[in-house]
Amino acid sequence: MKTNMTAPVTGLTMGLAMSLTLVTAATAFGEDMHQHGVMISDAWSRETTPGARVGGGYLTITNHGMKDDRLVAVAAAHAGKVEVHTMTMKDDVVVMRPVENGLTIPAGDAVKLAPGGEHLMFMKLSHPHVADEPFEATLSFEHAGEKVVVFDVLSMRESMARMVDTDDHHDSTDHSKEHHNQ
């Protein structure tokens, strides 16, 4: 029993240590050399109402590397499951689907997950997203490894302002969409 218990713990510790190393490495490369790895910016979510089963997450992922990368998994302590979703409006109908096989981040390009399009879907929430209480999520990339990302949580009012802001920048959103819809 004891060996069975310690093995996973050791594995976990090693995993954590490795993740930390990867995160540090990715950050160092991203910031210092701008040649390798992915950079995350503008990570935010909106507050959820008490009964909400899910919360949306938005962010910009920039790939400074020479080859395409993929966001293959996302995990957060307060969410039993996190998926990347597309959201489209067909006339007045909301159509939301999980992105299969990860979200591709083309080399030398940025993918923006923003209201009105792709988002992270935090599901099975153990507690709601509360305005001004940031939370962490771990994003796993095929090449860049794991990155711990802090999501700001905006109030509904702030998030509405952010949505208007997003609408003003259709060009960049459409640009990013061109890639991962391929």
Binding site: V54, V94, P115, H119, M121, F122, M156, M160
Partner: peptide
């Protein structure tokens, strides 16, 4: 519905 992370809360808030 309550599994709707964006359109439903935004619409209700609006």
């Amino acid at each position: 519905f309550t599994y709707c992370p964006e359109i439903c809360p935004v619409s209700l808030y609006m």
